[in-house]
Design a binder for these strands. Structure first.
Lengths: 153, 153
DNA sequence: TTCTGCATGTCAGGATTTTGACACGTCGAG
DNA sequence: CTCGACGTGTCAAAATCCTGACATGCAGAA
């Protein structure tokens, strides 16, 4: 708006708040806060919930594998697993059968806890998705995926 | 892919990785990593760059105001400002004229540093936006905004 | 077989962020 | 005018996360 000589065509937006990064940050922060509040009553943190969700989807994943899929480091996921073990929500064998990786899986208690937490988390997600027409939602998922691939690759 | 009984209609996606939250997290993590790498050569962190960008857009903002717009706490923004002050990229009066808020503004050095950093950051953003058709980009910005509003409100 | 590369788990250290708390300055209702 | 609510800046402590580093176990090449 102020002083922008159009001598720089490579970028479309004149305002920072119009950038994809800013909007992405804003949406992510809002989601994080909402999920934190929703999960607090179930004594779960967001990384812990993500971990339970991943293990429900595919059991017997290693610490490193879980870390990659949750977009955190191995060290961070390690402390998450420690917390879940202390709360008796997952189990891990003390010895590795194959390599050095020890597979984790949900306990019955963990499965129940996940079920309880899902209801509130899904309510949050529904508040988001209801703000968009259904047709836009699938497009949004695709676009977000393309964005991430463009940066990771 | 594996075992998904469609016995749960309240939620559209059967797989966690299809949820909006997961995609949002993935895209945000990828962007964060890319920006970190890009800003490292300019001796700036992502919050520091965000702060410079915000001050360029509107000078004389207070610490609390900057924190809100950068989606962090006042305390976090306070240490960011401290770093920028030590690097002589911004200035702040030692006494507040009106309330207790002390306005921050860019120094000439800060303006130059921002200019330099922008080129690399914009390159990152261009890598993202080029992965999408132009028509989708504006829709994506709108959708992200609606998502955040739905959660904040 | 031996050894090099690679992935995993884990420890220690530091950097960053948040939570909780308190003091200060302004504004408006009573 | 007085006082209470509100916003702001700042301190201390805790939690969280990452960087760097090292040891272990497996697979493939020499």
């Amino acid at each position: 708006m102020q002083n922008s000589q159009p001598a720089e065509p490579p970028h479309p937006a004149a305002d920072v708040t119009e950038h994809v990064g800013y909007r992405l940050k804003r949406a992510h922060a809002a989601l994080r806060n909402a999920m934190d509040r929703a999960l607090r009553e179930h004594d779960l943190t967001v990384p812990q919930y993500s971990c339970l969700e991943l293990l429900a989807l595919q059991p017997d994943m290693s610490n490193a594998e879980l870390a990659r899929r949750a977009f955190v480091t191995r060290q961070s996921m390690n402390v998450v697993l420690r917390g879940l073990l202390d709360a008796d929500l997952i189990t891990r064998p003390t010895t590795a059968d194959h390599g050095r990786a020890r597979p984790a899986r949900l306990t019955e208690r963990g499965r129940r806890r996940l079920e309880d937490a899902r209801s509130t988390v899904y309510a949050v997600e529904r508040r988001m998705t209801e703000a968009l027409p259904q047709s836009r939602l699938t497009a949004l998922l695709d676009d977000l995926d393309h964005l991430a691939e463009a940066l990771d690759g």
